[in-house]
Every structure is written in structure tokens, then in C-alpha cells.
Design a protein around this nucleic acid. Structure first.
Ligand SMILES: [Mn+2]
Ligand SMILES: [Mn+2]
Ligand SMILES: [Mn+2]
Ligand SMILES: [Mn+2]
Lengths: 158, 158
DNA sequence: TTGCAAATGAAGCCTTGGCAACACTTCTGT
DNA sequence: ACAGAAGTGTTGCCAAGGCTTCATTTGCAA
């Protein structure tokens, strides 16, 4: 122990994983809101600020600010005192995020995590699951669960 | 579709998972710094602001600010122009976080995620892995990768 | 039709975690 | 011994994501 500090070696590549984690985190709120807005539109035909705020567990000004960012990023549109809607880009993201969320929950449950815990933990973990990892999750699920046990997943929807 | 808004049902319990994710996220930076400081102390006997900053991929004022928060929370100590050290509490957290990090990486690899990707994704995911889920991961790993002595028996004769 | 409750908007505050720029201290090599 | 390099501290800026408070608009029920 107590070795000298290296010149280049690991210190250059190591920070990359933190940068990736920070980048993923900066998308997390966007992703959750977009998914939630998609849910509400599916249920009620529109997404009201009040409903968004309530489901996200924040106050309405916080939801308003988040929606502003969504609009700025081209994911949502809205006019004063009207509901919030998703752009094509936003709807695509919502679909992608929703599928990933489901896969992460399914994987946790397949590993042996109680369903309730899986739902809680997945909400945070999902945003850090890369495409490569997601594909690995899907492959694992296909090989772990016999196809007949996944009938409802393949056919229906929740 | 287009149903009425419910009075109580899901909207009350749903926000909980976002609250948990936010709570976990608020610990993430603390955990990463504490683990990193522990690493540096193990390697060099002390953790300098410059080395912390370099490994975390941030500038030194950012690292200084993070260390201030660690000190405020009783996880680290330092005096001007001297290195940063962990309190007992900080060292305990570092140990816990390090073990969890390893378990998450191991699980991802066991699932079939490439080692490099596992390392990247785990850096963000780890902070959202609850104790219950961590236990499930450990149990899965023991099941999936049986100890050598038992594997010999299992694969041995017929 | 109108009055009131609910929804939305707007303003201002806080904390966190980034950054750059500049000042000061410590360390190191000659 | 000391000058320059390296490390550290400080200040001030920004954006994001929380919050409260207050103003305004909408929508509904009487
Ligand atoms: Mn989420
Ligand atoms: Mn989600
Ligand atoms: Mn981490
Ligand atoms: Mn880690």
C-alpha cells in the first residue's frame, strides 16, 4: 500500500462511469414525466398539471417547471390553462421508457425480488440501464422463464 | 378509455416510488464520494482534493463542495490544505457502498451483461438497490454460481 | 348567469451540483 | 533558500428541481 500516484493509467478512464451516471440522471426526471403524461393521456385523454403533480408526488409549480423543460426539449406541448400533450418524439420516448420500466421490474422479480420492492427500486434503477444491459435483461428473461409463463405479457397489456 | 378520475385509489400510493427514488438519489453523490475517498486512503494513505476531483471527473471546487457536505453530515473530516479523511461513520458507509457496488456488478455479469457495461451501469443503479433487493441479488448469485466444492458434486458422477 | 372552488400561472426562495476565475498556501527541485 | 509549480480555497455564476405564496383563469353548480 501507500504507493505513488500514477501518471495516466486508470485515473483517465475511471471518471467515465461517473460521467455516464450523471448523464443518465439528467434524463431521469424527463423520462418519468414523459411516461406519466403518456399514462394520463391514455387514461383520460389529456394530462392536467394537477394530475401530473399528484402522481409524481410534487406540488403543481414543480410539475409546471418540469413540463416547461419538456416543452423546451421538444417532448411536450401545451397552451395556457389547457392540458399537456406529447409530441411524436415525446410519445416515442414514453413508449421506450415504459417498456424498459417493465423489463427492469420483470427482471428483478425473476431474480427473486418481491414485486412491491421491485416496483420501488426499478423507478430509480431504470434510468441507468443502458441498451446493452436492457438487451441482456430481455435475453435472460426469455431463457429463465418458459414461454408459456409469459403469455399475458406477450398478448395483453396492463 | 377516457375514464373518470378516481377519488383515492392508486394516486395516493403511486407517488411513493418517486419519493423513494428521489431519496435514494439524494444519497448518491455522498455515497460515491465516500467510497472514492476510502479507495484513495487505501491506496495513498490520504485523499487529496485534486485526486478526488480527478477520479470523480469534476473540477476541484466541485469536489471541495461535496467534501463540505460530507463533513457537515459527519462522514468526513479535513483541515485546510490537508487531506480528507473518513469518520468511523464514513468508513462504515464506504464499506457498505463498496460491497453493494460489487454485488450489483457481479449480478449484472451473472445475468449476461458485458463486464465493461456492467461497471458503467452499476455506478448509477447501485444507489437505488434497496436492502431487500441486495439480499435477493446475493441469494441469486449463490444459487447461480455455486461454490466450487458443491459444483464438483453436482457435476460429478451420475 | 353568475359566483365560487378548483386549476393554473407567476414570482421568489432554497439546496445541490456543476463550472471558471482568481487568490493564497504548500511543496519541490535547483 | 527560494522561485515556480502544484494544490487548495474562495467567490460568483448557472441550471435543475424542490418549495410557499399569491394572482389569475376556468369550469361547474346553483
Ligand atoms: Mn423512474
Ligand atoms: Mn418508471
Ligand atoms: Mn455510484
Ligand atoms: Mn460505486
Amino acid at each position: 500500500m501507500q504507493q505513488d500516484r500514477p501518471e495516466e493509467s486508470e485515473a483517465v478512464v475511471e471518471p467515465e462511469r461517473f460521467n455516464q451516471a450523471r448523464a443518465a440522471q439528467s434524463m431521469a426526471v424527463l423520462e418519468d414525466y414523459v411516461e406519466m403524461i403518456g399514462d394520463l393521456i391514455g387514461e383520460f385523454g389529456e394530462a392536467r398539471i394537477t394530475d401530473i403533480a399528484q402522481r409524481m408526488g410534487v406540488t403543481h409549480p414543480t410539475a409546471t417547471k418540469a413540463v416547461s423543460r419538456l416543452k423546451r426539449e421538444g417532448l411536450a406541448i401545451s397552451r395556457p390553462y389547457r392540458g399537456v400533450f406529447l409530441t411524436d418524439q415525446g410519445a416515442a420516448m414514453a413508449e421506450r421508457v415504459r417498456a424498459r420500466h417493465r423489463t427492469v421490474v420483470d427482471l428483478l422479480v425473476a431474480i427473486g425480488v418481491p414485486a412491491e420492492t421491485a416496483e420501488l427500486d426499478a423507478e430509480g434503477m431504470e434510468h441507468h440501464v443502458s441498451d446493452v444491459t436492457l438487451k441482456a435483461f430481455e435475453a435472460f428473461l426469455q431463457r429463465a422463464l418458459p414461454p408459456r409463463d409469459r403469455r399475458d405479457e406477450a398478448t395483453g397489456k396492463g
